[in-house]
């Protein structure tokens, strides 16, 4: 899991990119607290072979799940 809460863009996507490049995980959980980060990570996922879904995670936070496409 990547905890990118508190980081402003583009840091959350950079953190996801590094993890995807290094380990190509089948699934990846990401915590963010910036709606802009949700959009950017979702777009990054779509462009890099992952399906992304997001859900609210308490007040003002979001949890994203990235799943590698077959």
């Amino acid at each position: 899991m990547i905890d990118a809460r508190g980081y402003s863009c583009p840091m959350p996507v950079v953190m996801v990119q590094k993890e995807v490049k290094a380990n190509a995980p089948q699934t990846l959980e990401v915590l963010v607290d910036d709606p802009c980060a949700v959009e950017n990570i979702t777009r990054f996922a779509a462009n890099n072979g992952y399906a992304a879904s997001s859900r609210p995670n308490g007040e003002d936070e979001f949890a994203l799940t990235l799943v590698k496409k077959a």
């Binding site: 863009c9 950079v14 990119q17 959009e39 462009n47």
Partner: peptide, 19 residues
């Protein structure tokens, strides 16, 4: 829209993303 003049070029360099 999150419009950003620096972000536009930065995202192309970082992610190949032209959004």
């Amino acid at each position: 829209s999150r419009l950003c003049m620096a972000g536009g070029l930065r995202d192309v360099f970082l992610f190949r993303d032209c959004h």
